[in-house]
């Protein structure tokens, strides 16, 4: 896979290191000559110095044959234009833009460019973890329309010792897997939940809080 990344700083460096470690062919575009020299020294990636929203620079970087273009600069307008150029002029099949302003994630989608907001992602992670310390993992899937959450049943859990079919689970929620003593169990209605069980829940953003409360109880 050939990945073209436009950006700067740590995001660019670590993304590139991550992708090259997986064996992808990575090309970086950065405006700052000094930073380009550093990147070229530290990473096994081709580095192109220039403005990534300039079609000539994209062409020079080989955008024509790229499988993915990632635009992660600190400027939303640049990220949008980079992705649009990649699609319109170089027929890149997949592009992804960082929306620095979280509101722009939705705007970019409306303009036909896939986008993500680190503020959204980090914000929801922190909120979930801080409010309920038993929650140890949270992963949004389907552009954030579905949550996958892992929780540990504590001593004060109102459902500990109950059978799954006796738990009043809100609509559109599912106990996907129970992990007990490192053994995964796909539970049926007759299975009991025990203290210390790690439970993987599938929820929707609208019922997420309610479902968690069912398993962990009211907390102050």
């Amino acid at each position: 896979m050939k990945v073209l990344i436009v950006g700067s700083g740590n995001t660019l460096y670590f993304l590139c290191r991550n992708f090259t470690a997986k064996g992808y062919q990575v090309i970086l575009i950065n405006r700052d000559r000094e930073e380009c020299v550093q990147l070229a020294r530290q990473l096994s990636a081709m580095v192109v110095c220039g403005d990534g929203s300039d079609a000539t620079i994209l062409k020079e970087a080989g955008a024509m044959g790229a499988d993915v273009v990632l635009a992660v600069t600190p400027n939303d307008q640049d990220n949008l234009v980079i992705c649009q150029l990649a699609v319109l002029q170089f027929a890149v099949p997949r592009v992804l833009a960082l929306a620095n302003d979280p509101d722009n994630a939705e705007v970019f989608e409306k303009l036909g460019v896939s986008a993500f907001s680190t503020t959204h992602i980090v914000g929801s992670l922190i909120e979930q973890r801080v409010s309920l310390e038993q929650i140890i993992n949270l992963l949004p899937v389907g552009e954030g329309r579905v949550n996958v959450t892992e929780i540990i049943l504590g001593h004060d859990s109102p459902v500990a010792g109950k059978r799954l079919k006796d738990i009043n689970l809100p609509e559109n929620a599912l106990v996907a897997v129970v992990i007990r003593n490192d053994q995964p169990i796909v539970p049926r209605g007759g299975n009991e939940l025990l203290i210390g069980d790690r439970i993987v829940l599938i929820t929707l953003p609208e019922n997420h809080g309610l479902v968690l409360k069912t398993f962990t109880g009211e907390r102050k």
Binding site: Q77, L80, V81
Partner: peptide, 16 residues
Amino acid sequence: HEDNVNLMVAQVARKV
């Protein structure tokens, strides 16, 4: 004075 700002705002104005 920035092309990309102008292009982004124009699209947002038109489509959003």
